Simulated assay, not measured.
Amino acid sequence: MPHQTPLIATIVMGLVLAFVFGAVANRLRVSPLVGYLLAGVLVGPFTPGFVADQALANELAEIGVILLMFGVGLHFSLKDLLSVKAIAIPGAVGQIAVATLMGLGLSWAMGWPLGGGFIFGLALSVASTVVLLRALQERRLIETERGRIAVGWLIVEDLAMVLALVLLPALGGVVGQGEDPSLQGGLPSREILITLAITLGKVVAFVALMLVVGRRLIPWVLHYV
């Protein structure tokens, strides 16, 4: 078919359906996010009618997440996180541990393997920072102490998930021992420790780079331009 425009079609249909279902959800006194989710289902491959280009949709979704997280960064700073660290850090770590164990227990009761149950519980243990930020903004609570604690709590969860996602491939062999004969032996503990050290080094380097470049160099460049 000549003149195919999958990018334009995906953007147009996504925006139109998001607008329509978001307006309906708002009219029903439900969060517009519910309407946006329904719009995404309708343009997906599991419903009749128009099907968006899945590869393009995934890339556009990644761009959307980047922009939304940029919004989180505009409303929260390292100073705010440090001011609520006594509550946010132990609270987030405790919630992740409890929710992961609950998910692991549920998956064990359903007969799932240990590795799959662990990942399932880990996925249940975090909430959306962007969704919470949006809800706090609507209620004008973002600058309150409760708002700073809530956002700081979820930022700690986000950092923990980044670490978990990096370590999952390395730990996969160890978790899968006894479940798959091909994974017997797993990764030696030395390699896991090396992977952990490299990951922590990258995180420290990234934070240092952002504190120096993000707070000093980029504002200077923008002022110069």
Rank of each mutant, 00 (worst) to 15 (best):
157 E>W: 10
60 L>E: 01
223 H>R: 15
225 V>G: 13
91 G>D: 08
26 N>F: 14
164 A>S: 06
116 G>V: 03
218 I>E: 05
222 L>H: 10
181 P>V: 07
86 A>W: 11
73 G>F: 06
68 L>G: 10
9 A>Q: 01
157 E>N: 08
31 S>R: 15
201 G>M: 07
197 A>T: 12
211 L>G: 07
139 R>D: 12
80 D>R: 09
8 I>W: 08
216 R>Y: 10
193 L>F: 14
80 D>P: 07
191 E>H: 13
36 Y>A: 11
192 I>M: 10
72 V>S: 05
62 E>K: 15
118 F>P: 06
164 A>Y: 05
110 M>Y: 09
170 A>V: 12
126 V>Q: 14
146 R>K: 14
167 L>Y: 08
146 R>Q: 15
85 K>N: 09
183 L>V: 04
153 W>I: 05
3 H>Q: 15
36 Y>E: 11
95 Q>S: 12
60 L>Y: 01
116 G>W: 01
131 V>L: 02
136 L>S: 00
115 G>H: 08
16 V>K: 03
221 V>R: 12
17 L>G: 01
79 K>W: 07
25 A>I: 12
27 R>N: 11
21 F>D: 03
47 T>P: 02
74 L>H: 06
202 K>P: 07
112 W>Q: 13
115 G>S: 13
210 M>E: 14
171 L>Y: 06
49 G>H: 09
124 L>F: 01
82 L>Q: 15
191 E>T: 12
7 L>D: 00
13 M>I: 11
149 I>R: 07
114 L>S: 05
125 S>D: 03
187 L>T: 12
180 D>Y: 08
63 I>F: 10
143 E>T: 14
91 G>F: 10
109 A>T: 11
45 P>L: 05
189 S>P: 07
187 L>F: 14
50 F>K: 02
101 L>N: 05
155 I>W: 09
161 M>P: 04
86 A>Y: 09
141 L>P: 04
141 L>E: 15
